[in-house]
């Protein structure tokens, strides 16, 4: 058991290091610099600013300094937001994105699974068709369109909810709805497909023959197996939703961290590009690890370590 964790941990660190190294050098090969603006800048000022952020040093030295600081948990100062560190930015953006993401995920998972199970149980019935139509719509309507429609209908035409910003539970409803439809649809389709497959298997017939109640069959026997593919997508889905969505955060003026992914690249804010990448990769790697652990929970046949498998 322990050796498995140690091995896994080492692999995670190496993966992260590879990502950091790749991003660091790729980022510097992109033409343009943080100080290329339309505004007048004279050479002296430009040089002063570059020196201030140590951008005048050789790249390999910058890389070394970055890694050394990173090991101590220091993501460096933001170039475009003077006086603020990347730790500050992520420290206040992430909790908000996380809050939005968590509620979105809960809503998407619960409603997605219910839709999927119901559709599978009433296979080819009207409920199935209705549920799947909703799912197709959910997948094909981009969330920013959904967001605009929701704002227009539920905030402007019928003023039930505020248009934007993030200051009370009421403000959270529209962005969560807009963000949840996509993942909900994906989960619903996945659940339906694997439920249909599981329901035809022999052990389900056995369970039925034993006279178990339909509720028990579905939730104890069928769903547990059917959830494996759902869990697989959940890892990466959770990592991306929890770190915020650029478009939704922009439309609803939510102060999360989603915007840093895009803005930092546009403005070549090197330390923020690195910070968001490191953070996102670390979270993704962690999520994938959790997914693997969950496999073992859902399906005892999957063993995480050799000893028990033998």
């Amino acid at each position: 058991m322990n050796t498995y964790f140690i091995k896994r941990f080492v692999a995670m660190i190496i993966t992260l290091w590879l990502i950091i190294t790749g991003t660091f050098f790729l980022m510097h090969t992109v033409p343009g610099s943080p100080f290329d603006e339309e505004r007048t800048t004279n050479e002296t000022i430009q040089k002063n600013r570059e020196a201030y952020y140590q951008l005048d040093k050789p790249l390999i030295l910058q890389y070394g300094n970055y890694l050394a600081a990173l090991v101590q948990g220091d993501l460096g100062p933001s170039i475009k937001k003077p006086g603020q560190t990347v730790n500050d930015l992520l420290g206040r953006g992430f909790p908000i994105s996380f809050e939005l993401g968590l509620f979105t995920l809960i809503l998407a998972i619960i409603s997605g699974i219910i839709l999927g199970v119901v559709a599978a149980l009433r296979h080819n019935g009207w409920i199935d068709y209705l549920a799947m139509s909703i799912a197709v719509l959910g997948i094909s309507i981009p969330n920013f369109v959904m967001a605009t429609v929701l704002i227009q209908q539920l905030a402007v035409n019928i003023p039930i909810f505020p248009v934007a910003t993030w200051s009370s539970p009421k403000h959270m409803v529209l962005p969560i709805l807009a963000l949840a439809t996509g993942p909900m649809a994906i989960i619903a389709r996945l659940t339906r497909t694997s439920m249909l497959e599981v329901l035809t298997q022999d052990y389900i017939k056995t369970a039925k023959a034993k006279g178990l109640s339909p509720v028990k069959i579905v939730f104890k026997h069928a769903l547990r197996n059917a959830l494996l593919p759902v869990v697989t997508v959940l890892g990466s889905l959770a990592a991306s939703i929890l770190t915020g969505t650029f478009v939704i955060e922009k439309i609803f003026a939510i102060p999360g961290m989603g915007k840093y992914f895009v803005d930092s690249i546009n403005s070549r804010d090197y330390s923020v590009i690195m910070g968001t990448t490191v953070f996102y990769s670390a979270l993704l790697i962690l999520m994938l690890f959790l997914v693997d652990l969950t496999y073992g929970l859902l399906d005892p046949r999957i063993k995480l370590h050799k000893k028990e498998a033998e």
Partner: peptide, 12 residues
């Protein structure tokens, strides 16, 4: 406020 979307700003 810090609303970076022109349409949202107008709706607000």
């Amino acid at each position: 406020a810090m609303v970076d979307d022109a349409n949202t700003e107008y709706q607000m």
